[in-house]
Design a protein around this nucleic acid. Structure first.
Length: 475
RNA sequence: GCAUCCUUAGCUCAACGGAUAGAGCGUCGGACUUCGAAUCCGCAGGUUGCAGGUUCGAAUCCUGCAGGAUGCGCCA
């Protein structure tokens, strides 16, 4: 039976399986495609591009960010890149909780610290913020001699700090959405009226409740308006999410929340349904992170003052290693972060294994150039000279990269790319050890192999880029 | 008590419901006069927590049980 030209061979593999292999020609064309695409290799067009919002981190501006925020930053920014690579219109957002009870407590705690430094007798309020960092900020505030209201100042100051930290962690947001400003918009009251009209609210103990349990039996009712007349967090958050769809027209919203918010997730879903947005919001619960050092869990407690902040973690292990480790787990799985392993700049640390493959290729290209080979010309080489098993395997692997990116975006699972890159690096090292790339006695095969490894470097670089990990030329 | 997540090799983890369940690390044994040894090759390591069910087919889906983590406020 004649085979279509795209199919190279067919083999019966046992267990009822028949394998069709892509022809070598098709595979080898991939190499040229990759070289032509360059930085765009891995991008694809989406059959139904959507306007997507991805909200993540959204840490309260009340103190230094913790390691769960770090994980959220790594995961969120990577998913955003992957979704963009698939042709979606993606907007990333940090919801700035700069209003409400916690901010009031922060302001009071900060004022108390200032008063203490000035020698006055002042107490940090019940449930306030006792962290030492407020003392440092208070000194800074007093020295700067600004007339700004201390509460406004501290919120702003901490927000700037968070923005810097996130930027250092290669996580940028298109939008920092202020809760305080949002509350002024009147949207909260409007949404409240609509919820009342939906008939799913009731009064009890002087508060206004939302009957979420009627919409979804597993969800408990919750308070919209507290008995003191204040807006509850739940209500503001519902209005905020309604705003995403109604004022800003997102088709889909992904909100990444910490494990302590899983109860909130069901409430939001129920409320979105009541407001006519069912199925458009997907809350992703990102599980917790345990830091492991010396084979043991580091117990962190605010009281004992043993808290490792996101900044400390980045300073300790570096952005590349930290991001890599945060990305290697499914989002719903708990992550044990092995500090000792992440610190190691040796072969045990997989992030270097991948980066090393890239650096090695850059080094070979430089070597070839020094030998007088014109790197620009390798795109015109005779790729069909590649026929060793390891060469074909490498091409086969790189041809899967766009699919890997797509799968990451579809499944909203960041770990797929780092795992792929690890396997890919393995295939490259494998090839490298067995075959010489630059062979002065055979210029034609050299050119073909240089084309091959250039395409490999492109694949690694683009993969690392999506993960927010650097691809160093030398290391 | 309720809710969410987890349980796969010694360790850390992969595996669109599909083939003989795969990687890294660790152990052991090998490979550098030539492009980077931060590398490669090989050996060993498994009743996928337990018990049922659905299916042509289950690590994967359903139920129950056991073990672990977390959350259950008119805080956010």
């Amino acid at each position: 039976m004649p085979l279509p030209e795209k199919i190279g061979s067919v083999k019966v593999a046992g267990a009822g399986y028949i394998n069709f292999y892509l022809s070598k020609d098709i595979l080898l064309k991939m190499v040229k495609n990759i070289l032509e695409s360059g930085n765009d290799f891995g991008q694809s067009k989406c059959s139904n591009p959507r306007k997507i919002q991805l909200e993540f981190v959204s840490a309260n501006p009340t103190g230094p960010m913790n390691i769960v925020s770090a994980r959220a930053a790594a995961v969120g920014s990577t998913l955003a890149s992957a979704l963009r690579a698939c042709g979606n219109d993606v907007s990333t957002e940090f919801y700035l909780n700069d209003a409400g009870n916690q901010i009031r407590l922060l302001g009071e705690s900060f004022a108390a610290r200032i008063a203490q430094i000035e020698g006055k007798n002042a107490q940090i309020p019940e449930g306030g913020y006792f962290g030492e960092y407020l003392i440092e900020y208070a000194k800074e505030y007093l020295q700067s001699a600004i007339s700004e209201n201390p509460k406004e100042w501290i919120v702003h100051r901490i927000t700037i700090e968070q923005q810097d930290t996130l930027k250092n962690f290669r996580t940028e947001f298109d939008m920092w959405f202020s809760e305080k400003e949002f509350r002024k918009s009147g949207k909260v009251e409007e949404v409240l009226e609509r919820l009342k009209k939906s008939g799913q609210t009731y009064e009890k103990d002087g508060a206004l409740w939302f009957a979420a349990s009627r919409i979804s039996p597993n969800v408990e009712d919750f308070v919209l308006i507290k008995s003191d007349g204040e807006l509850a967090y739940g209500l503001v958050d519902i209005a905020y999410h309604a705003n995403k769809f109604e004022e800003r027209g997102f088709d889909v919203v992904y909100t990444i929340l910490g494990p302590d918010h899983h109860g909130h997730s069901g409430r939001l879903d129920a409320a979105m349904e009541a407001l006519g947005h069912s199925g458009k919001l997907k809350v992703l619960i990102l599980q917790q992170v345990n830091l492991i050092e010396g084979g043991e869990k580091i117990k962190m407690s605010k009281r004992a003052g043993k808290l490792i902040t996101m900044t400390e973690l980045i300073d300790d292990v570096g952005t590349d290693a930290a991001r890599y480790f945060f990305l290697t787990r499914k989002i719903e799985a708990h992550l044990d972060f092995d500090l000792d392993l992440a610190r190691k700049t040796s072969d045990e640390n997989p992030v270097y294994y991948i980066q090393y493959a890239y650096a090695r290729i850059r080094s070979i290209l430089e070597f070839a150039q020094n030998k007088g080979i014109d790197i620009e010309e390798i795109a015109n080489s005779d790729i069909s000279l590649l026929k060793e098993r390891e060469e074909i395997e490498l091409v086969r692997k790189m041809s899967k990269f766009p699919y890997i990116v797509k799968k990451t975006a579809q499944n909203l699972q960041p770990h797929i790319i780092p795992f792929y890159l690890l396997e890919f690096a393995k295939k490259f090292h494998n090839f490298y050890t067995k075959y010489r790339v630059v062979d002065e006695n055979d210029k034609r095969i050299s050119a073909a192999r240089l084309a091959l490894i250039t395409a490999a470097a492109e694949t690694i670089k683009n993969g690392l880029k999506i993960c927010g990990i650097s691809a160093p030329d030398k290391m």
